[in-house]
């Protein structure tokens, strides 16, 4: 009875939200990475999470499919609580998601085509080989890599790996796609192609999209809503206009890519210490 009530409340709170975090806290030892975060993602919209490296973006995005379990708080998918489910139940839920990992996370023992077929093979009985090949070709063409089917991940560049990983993430036509730094490490043109692809999947197929990034060009291009994470808390939440005019100096510094005065002072001081304290080795030895 008590539980049913709790679920209902969450449903009310989420509105037409498809994904929701409620008071999620995640710690690694004493390191509090997420501190009491509540967040609802709307169906069919693109939400971008920004923040400096190491602020817990990857940790946050992994919570949406419970690759990490929160120390406290609850996670909902379509108003169903999922953070307390067993791995086998989660496996079914995870087929609704596509997840692009920061480093691609391609299986390096499998070829590009086998990587893309992997999720299909796990959930469907493959009867018609040629249909599958066709699907692989379509997905690879989407990311501009048709013809690379028999290559191995080790022989691809970082950007190519990421694009293959994206092709794999969309192999099952997911309803929700989670992107962990999709454009990091790509040249500006490739990055823009990825941005276009994210937009196309979202607008064309109505895919709910969550992107984690610190690439501001990409943010302004794709975001319906921007969330900034800092020290485990959400310090800004709104559309591009809201973020641009945000009064908080931390937000302003981040989106403009400026170093704070404090950091600059440390840099200047560090330089003089090095000059004063270090002697060239050969002088000492004379």
């Amino acid at each position: 009875m008590e539980k049913a009530k709790g679920n209902k409340q969450a449903a009310d709170a989420s509105g037409d939200g498809i994904l929701a975090l409620k008071n999620v806290t995640k710690k690694f030892g004493d390191n509090v990475v997420l501190d009491d975060i509540s967040l609802t993602m709307e169906k069919g919209k693109t939400t971008v999470v920004i923040g400096p490296s190491g602020c817990g973006k990857t940790v946050l995005i992994k919570h949406f499919i419970v690759l990490l379990r929160p120390n406290m708080g609850e996670i909902y998918f379509r108003d169903r609580r999922i953070d307390n489910l067993g791995e086998h139940e989660l496996d079914k839920i995870r087929t609704h998601f596509g997840f692009l990992f920061q480093g691609g996370a391609l299986f390096d023992s499998l070829s590009v085509a086998e990587n893309i077929v992997f999720p299909i093979k796990q959930h469907y009985k493959i009867t018609d080989r040629s249909k599958v090949d066709e699907l692989v070709t379509t997905k690879l063409a989407l990311v501009g890599l048709d013809g690379f089917q028999s290559h191995y991940p080790a022989n691809l560049s970082g950007g190519q790996r990421k694009r293959v990983a994206l092709a794999r993430a969309i192999a099952l036509n997911p309803e929700v796609i989670l992107y962990d730094e999709p454009t990091t490490g790509l040249d500006p043109i490739r990055a823009d192609i990825i941005n276009e692809l994210i937009l196309k999947l979202q607008r064309g197929l109505g895919v709910t999209t969550v992107v984690v990034t610190h690439d501001m060009t990409s943010v302004y291009k794709i975001a319906d809503r921007i969330i900034m994470l800092h020290h485990g808390k959400i310090i800004a939440d709104g559309d591009a206009e809201h973020i641009r005019n945000h009064p908080d100096s931390i937000v302003q510094q981040f989106i403009k890519g400026q170093v704070s005065e404090n950091d600059l002072a440390v840099l200047r001081m560090g330089g003089s210490i090095i000059q004063a304290q270090l002697q060239p080795r050969d002088e000492l030895e004379e």
Partner: peptide, 8 residues
Amino acid sequence: DAVRSMGT
């Protein structure tokens, strides 16, 4: 994690 994310 990738294996898990694909429901396996």
